[in-house]
């Protein structure tokens, strides 16, 4: 649980810092990447609960 929360917090802070640094027109391209990263992290955490591993 703690690991999952730490990952969520890390992705959020990293992506929002990058969003601040990127120019406004690049934001549209960057947001799907952030969503993908969060999705991979959530699926990875869920599969780990059931004893499997994505990587």
């Amino acid at each position: 649980m703690l690991q999952f929360l730490t990952g969520v917090l890390f992705i959020t802070i990293l992506s929002s810092t990058l969003l601040l640094l990127l120019p406004a027109e690049k934001e549209e391209e960057f947001l799907p990447l952030v969503k993908m990263a969060m999705g991979i992290w959530i699926i990875h955490s869920i599969t780990r609960i059931f004893g499997h591993s994505l990587f």
Partner: peptide, 10 residues
């Protein structure tokens, strides 16, 4: 997290 980054809501 969902307030800070509205694109990824929880």
């Amino acid at each position: 997290v969902s307030r800070f980054h509205p694109a990824i809501p929880f």
